[in-house]
Amino acid sequence: MIQCVVVVFTLFCPVAFPVKHSLIFSLTASSGVRDIPEFLGSVLVDEVQAGYCDSNIKTAEPKVDWMRKFMKENPQQLEWYVNKCIESQHFFRATIDSLVKRLNQTTGAHILQRMSGCEWDDETGEIRGYIQYGYDGEDFIALDLQTLTWIASKPEAFITKLRWDADQAELDDYKYYYVHLYPDWLKKYVQYANSSLQRTDLPSVSLLQKTPSSPVTCHATGFYPDRADLFWRKDGEELHEDVDKGEILPNHDGTFQMSVDLNISLIAPEDWKKYDCVFQMSGVKDDIITKLDKSVIRTNWVPPSVFPAGAVIGVVVGLLLLLLCITGLFMWRKKTNGFRAANTSDSADRHSDPN
């Protein structure tokens, strides 16, 4: 998904794996939002980020190996993405400024986002293109590629609809890009990405717990792709109560991780054997099942009443040796002519900071 800490709106694009493929262009511009670039863009192929650009780096970058290979062999397309990134920044900036003035929004942060792209069913050959804009967290305007007319999602977008409907040359370009050109690109991307998109990595699954009274976390990491599920069950039935399920998150190596917590406070020890954690992945026949077993739970917790005996002995011996040294130094200075007795405050200062 787009690399942005602000999520404005989500356009759900139906994807039936593996026969339906998708190419998504996700563009976001902001005004008055700190700590993120004013413009962000991502290209996703089958929901995997393949390229990225923003107003800070001022260029387009492939994000996966197969796309780097494709761009190396097709440098004119990389140049197209770089130019498109720069053009889109100016267009989005001008559009936000226009909307802010028209809607009399003198203060605050504002977000403009466009989700567009195409889907291709490699079994039926069906192609569907789409373009949709959102503004400040709400749907704003969308293009009907069948009638080549814009549909205003709210009254404030009607003026924009009238202006954009009048630009017939732009509408014809949209139809060419989203019905013909982009689907052709998608087919080529799928060919290059075929081995990567069909790769399957199974995760390592662990049970984690902070303290004996804390929930038990079932954590799966290192899996690919992200079409997976992780859940707790009892006696073979999936649990929906006393569980807290996390989102699927990316790892730095391109794989994914997720976790789900189980509240064990009301589970009797003799009933633990009834529970297990299940990891499922689309296209993989066998599930990974991890039994709720105290012996396999990993934790860093140490009972507060337990303190290592070796550490106690070491501290006591160290203090005794330090005391003997200070006492010996005091006596030696007192017996030696020309030397004054050791100042206890000096000794204290020298040993007050062990570092």
Rank of each mutant, 00 (worst) to 15 (best):
K161G: 00
H219N: 14
E170I: 02
D201P: 01
G246L: 05
D121Y: 06
D165S: 10
L171T: 04
W301T: 07
Y174F: 15
E38K: 10
S116I: 06
K58E: 08
D97Q: 13
S295M: 08
P75A: 03
S282H: 13
K84F: 05
N104M: 03
V284G: 02
K101G: 03
R128E: 07
S213G: 08
Q89E: 06
L197N: 07
T160E: 07
S116F: 07
R114W: 04
K188V: 13
D122A: 06
W332N: 09
T147N: 13
H21E: 13
T327L: 11
F140A: 07
K291E: 13
Q280N: 11
F223L: 02
K274M: 07
A220V: 06
K291N: 14
K334A: 15
Y52L: 05
D65E: 15
P155Q: 05
N194L: 09
D35E: 03
T107I: 09
G32M: 08
R333V: 07
V82I: 12
D54I: 02
W150N: 02
D167E: 08
D65C: 10
S30W: 00
L266S: 14
R298P: 00
V45M: 11
V48G: 00
L292A: 05
E170T: 08
C325V: 11
P183C: 03
W150R: 02
A309D: 09
F91T: 01
D165W: 06
E237R: 13
M258F: 00
S88L: 03
N56T: 11
E61H: 09
R68A: 14
S42L: 06
T107A: 12
L145A: 09
I127Q: 08
A60P: 03
L239W: 01
